[in-house]
């Protein structure tokens, strides 16, 4: 039986692993033999933006206000 977790708790777990995922993306681009090291800063920047998008998607009631951090 899957444990029922609240949306916020799930999002916290998700965000907890997101930094590792971003590091994997950056590391992958850096090691890639396709010569895309130049993409690392943009990919990392957008991924961090993505964390905000993910938070906004979770707490829909606050979605319009989450963007005020920009």
């Amino acid at each position: 039986m899957l444990k029922k977790r609240g949306a916020v708790q799930r999002k916290v777990i998700m965000l907890g692993s997101s930094f590792g995922s971003i590091a994997e993306l950056a590391g992958g681009l850096w090691r890639s033999d396709s010569g895309k090291r130049w993409l690392v800063p943009l990919a990392v920047f957008l991924s961090v933006t993505g964390i905000v998008l993910a938070v906004a998607a979770t707490v829909e009631a606050l979605a319009p206000f989450v963007y005020s951090i920009f």
Partner: peptide, 23 residues
């Protein structure tokens, strides 16, 4: 970007959060 970054790229976290298995 909204489609990808809103959820789809965070698959490891989604699986962890639903199933509780370690990364």
């Amino acid at each position: 970007m909204q489609n990808s970054l809103g959820e789809r790229v965070w698959v490891r976290g989604i699986i962890s959060s639903h199933l509780g298995v370690p990364s």
